[in-house]
Structures are given as C-alpha cells and as structure tokens.
Design a protein around this nucleic acid. Structure first.
Lengths: 160, 160
DNA sequence: AGTGTTTTGTTGACTGCTCAGCAATTGACT
DNA sequence: AGTCAATTGCTGAGCAGTCAACAAAACACT
C-alpha cells in the first residue's frame, strides 16, 4: 500500500473518531441554542443575545456598575468589542457610561431604567427557550451532572 | 413600595436565577473551547476551526463529495456563508468544487490531497486540545452522560 | 519626584459571517 | 407541455466582532 492511501485511510479514521463527533456535538448544540435565543430576543425584545448577557451582569445587584474590562472578561470579548457593544447599547438607551471613581482610565457601565424594563421582558423570553431546549430534553438527574461537567470544563479553561 | 422598586427587585432576582447561570455556563464553555481550538489550529496549521469542520465532513468517507447545501446544514451556516468559506478554502488549495452529476444547480465539494494532509496535522492538534479541556476535566462516567445530554438537546433543536 | 511597565478604553482597517435579492435549475401539479 | 413553486448557489451591502497601534492614567521601584 502506498503512502497516499495510508494517509487517506488515516484521515477517514480520524474524521470518524467518536471524540471528534462528541466535541462537535457540544459546539453545535451550543451554537444552535444561542441562535434560537438570539433570534427570539431580537424579534420579541429588539435586543441581541450579547446585549442580554450584558444586562444580566448589570442587573445582578441593584445599582451595580461594572467596568468595561470586567464585562470583556465575563463575555469572552476583547476590550474593543466591548467598546462597540456598549456604544450600541448606549445608543439604544439600555445602559449609561459613568466615570469610575478613583480610576480615571476606567469606565463603568450601569443599566438605565429602560434597560431593566427590557431585561425583564427578555428574561421571560430567555426562560421560555431555555426551559424548552435545555431543561425539558434532559432527564432530571442528568441536569445536575451536565452543569457540573460544564463547570469543570470552564474551570479548566480559566485556570490556564 | 413603588412599581419601579418592584421592577428593580424582580430584575435582580431574574438576573441571579440558577437557570440563567447554568445556561450561561454552557454557552461560555463552548465559546472558550472553540476559541482555544481555533487559535491553536490557526497558529499550528493555518486553518480556521470552521475550515477544519469542513475537512472533517469531507474526509469522513473516502472520495466523498458533499454539496454546499449539506455543508451549510451541518455547520449551521447560511448558504452564502458556505459559498464564501469554500471560496477561501479553494483559494488555499484545501478543497475543490465539482459539478454535481444529475443536478446542475448543485455544487459538490471534495477534499484535495493537500486538504487531507492538513486535516491530519490539524486532527492531532484538535485531539490534544479536546483531550485536555474536554475529556481530562470530567469524571469518566460523566463523559458518557454529558454527550448523551448534548445529543438530547441537539435532537430537540433539530426536531423543531 | 522620576522613569519604565502595566492597565484601560478607543480607533482604523480588516474578517467572516448574515440578510435580501437574484438567476438558474428542478419539481409538482394540472 | 406549461405554469407556479421550491431549491441551489452567488452577490452587494451591512453588522458585529478581531487585531494592531495608540493615548491616558495608574502602578512599581528606585
């Protein structure tokens, strides 16, 4: 058998490996899930999923202002990505930039009243989709294991 | 208590809900995982993660040519996204377009020899990252449950 | 106090996708 | 055969992010 054929067979084997398939499943499920949420939020609340994630972070504690850097880390975005995201959200009246007391480089972002109102409507849409495609398909005792596993993966990623 | 305060409290409660957190974990873990793979593949093999996924699909069976439509469905992309992706991959010599016998609208895509070579190198990189951040962090018996759960979620998404 | 390093956010140029609109081909139904 | 609908891929325009380069402020260390 010549080398080209060996390569070919090896490629076929590698492409069919269960690890490749399982990992693909994670990426695909997450992608599809995010797309569902995003289109639902855009249609019903005129907010993108990313904006919704910002609002989650901002509404977690009352009157909590969060620096753009912190947002970037939380959302796995670059700082310039956050700059532009906050630009759009500010334009839509969802958030407001305020200077950070004690650090004149930093910019804090806080939710407006309108932002909180939109967040509440969006949270209902979000809950509906999550319930339907994330909770309902799972056996009840698999749910806890799934989140535990995801937590372990996330930890491994953050630790390095 | 006035309505504004009630909204505020409700927003705080919604933002802190465990479902919101757990779902965020899934999205975040998948995003970070994909970013790792993508940067590793770009650095070591000069291929994006999306291109790698195309090669997986094309190398699964020897000499299997796949239509662009099929690729679009598999990768959760639009057809125009695939058009442009295949343009770039063709430019890089990884794949080749061939006319579909029996349907003059459709375009089949097949891997070149160079595509298979690159795929083999990329598969090694992919395996390394997946092993480290997807397999290693999990308890062995959680792995099977995780993929089962992901399969159930993916099925629910595809069925509707 | 002064100097080099790090952190923070912004900007210009680019990438990789989407959406809307299109032409070509195919299929479905009389 | 003839028409109307659906499918397939392509293109222009636009959006949401990246990266590289930057200025301003803060920090570290003599």
């Amino acid at each position: 058998m010549n080398p080209a054929n060996r390569d070919n067979d090896e490629a076929v084997r590698a492409a069919g490996s269960p690890l490749v398939h399982d990992f693909g499943l994670l990426i695909k499920a997450a992608t599809r899930l995010e797309q569902r949420i995003d289109t639902a939020l855009r249609k019903e609340c005129e907010v993108s999923h990313t904006m919704f994630e910002v609002l989650i972070r901002l509404c977690r504690k009352p009157d909590e202002a969060v620096s753009q850097r912190e947002l970037a880390d939380d959302l796995t975005l670059t700082s310039s990505g956050v700059t532009r995201l906050v630009d759009r959200m500010e334009g839509a009246g969802l958030v407001r930039r305020v200077p950070a007391p004690g650090d004149r480089r930093s910019v804090l972002v806080e939710s407006t009243d309108h932002g909180r109102t939109v967040f509440l409507r969006a949270a209902a849409v979000h809950a509906r989709v999550v319930e339907r495609y994330f909770v309902a398909p799972l056996h009840p005792d698999d749910y806890g294991r799934l989140t535990g596993s995801l937590g372990a993966i996330d930890k491994a990623l953050r630790d390095t």
